[in-house]
Amino acid sequence: MKPIRTMVTFALACGLQLGMGSTWAQDGLVTGSSGAVTYASGGVGSEQREALAAMRADFNLRLTFATRGSGEMRADVALTITDRKRNPVLSLDAAGPQVYVKLPPGTYWVNAKADEQEQSRSVTIGRNGAAREVYFYWGAKPDQATTQ
């Protein structure tokens, strides 16, 4: 399975380098890059979830957006990731319900906004390559994100 994942990642990287633009969509899955940061956003429907699952190991930050109580996934989240000095490294207007990001090692702020409720979390990406999972939930009252 790893050779297929590697080929998908290589094809994506080649496509981006050949001028396909900073983002492209295939069956609703949006992928792209912003400087040294690459990302994939989607997860609506089984095809998108399968595509994300195939790329999972290539990303060190995995975000999930959902509604508290119902567990309904959210694909309408404004997402901004900034570095330690609050310089933007990634900004997406309608991200989710899952967003996978490949970031260089460092400390980042993840800001997610839905239903006029904004949540911010600090996330540190280490040099060891271990991935971080962050879950954001929105509901009747603002809630804390869960970080693993």
Rank of each mutant, 00 (worst) to 15 (best):
residue 27 D to A: 15
residue 97 P to Y: 04
residue 102 K to N: 13
residue 100 Y to M: 11
residue 120 S to R: 15
residue 30 V to I: 15
residue 61 L to I: 01
residue 87 N to R: 13
residue 83 D to R: 02
residue 80 T to F: 00
residue 99 V to R: 00
residue 96 G to P: 00
residue 79 L to R: 00
residue 112 A to Q: 01
residue 83 D to Q: 02
residue 66 A to L: 11
residue 130 A to N: 11
residue 77 V to W: 01
residue 132 R to N: 08
residue 93 D to F: 07
residue 50 E to V: 10
residue 27 D to K: 13
residue 96 G to L: 03
residue 11 A to T: 13
residue 36 A to V: 06
residue 19 G to R: 08
residue 46 S to G: 08
residue 32 G to A: 03
residue 87 N to E: 12
residue 74 R to P: 00
residue 79 L to A: 00
residue 31 T to C: 14
residue 76 D to N: 11
residue 64 T to E: 14
residue 119 Q to N: 12
residue 125 I to W: 07
residue 28 G to I: 07
residue 106 G to N: 02
residue 70 S to P: 03
residue 48 Q to N: 02
residue 57 A to M: 09
residue 70 S to F: 07
residue 85 K to G: 08
residue 9 T to G: 11
residue 99 V to Q: 01
residue 16 L to R: 10
residue 67 T to R: 12
residue 5 R to E: 14
residue 65 F to E: 00
residue 51 A to V: 04
residue 76 D to R: 08
residue 6 T to D: 15
residue 49 R to P: 06
residue 23 T to E: 15
residue 126 G to W: 06
residue 46 S to N: 13
residue 136 F to K: 04
residue 57 A to F: 07
residue 98 Q to C: 07
residue 19 G to D: 05
residue 110 V to H: 03
residue 36 A to M: 12
residue 50 E to Q: 15
residue 11 A to F: 14
residue 14 C to Y: 11
residue 69 G to T: 02
residue 43 G to K: 03
residue 81 I to F: 01
residue 130 A to W: 04
residue 108 Y to W: 03
residue 43 G to F: 06
residue 67 T to Y: 06
residue 29 L to P: 04
residue 78 A to C: 02
residue 109 W to V: 11
residue 110 V to C: 06
residue 20 M to F: 14
residue 55 M to P: 02
residue 25 A to R: 13
residue 15 G to Y: 09
residue 67 T to M: 11
residue 90 L to G: 00
residue 119 Q to K: 14
residue 41 S to M: 04
residue 124 T to G: 06
residue 119 Q to W: 08
residue 130 A to H: 11
residue 89 V to Y: 03
residue 92 L to T: 00
residue 111 N to A: 14
residue 18 L to C: 11
residue 48 Q to S: 03
residue 52 L to H: 05
residue 83 D to S: 02
residue 15 G to F: 09
residue 17 Q to A: 15
residue 115 D to E: 13
residue 130 A to Y: 06
residue 97 P to D: 05
residue 125 I to E: 06
residue 68 R to D: 12
residue 58 D to H: 12
residue 121 R to G: 10
residue 110 V to Y: 01
residue 76 D to Y: 06
residue 100 Y to Q: 10
residue 111 N to W: 07
residue 69 G to M: 07
residue 102 K to L: 11
residue 48 Q to T: 01
residue 24 W to G: 14
residue 102 K to W: 08
residue 62 R to A: 05
residue 92 L to S: 00
residue 119 Q to Y: 10
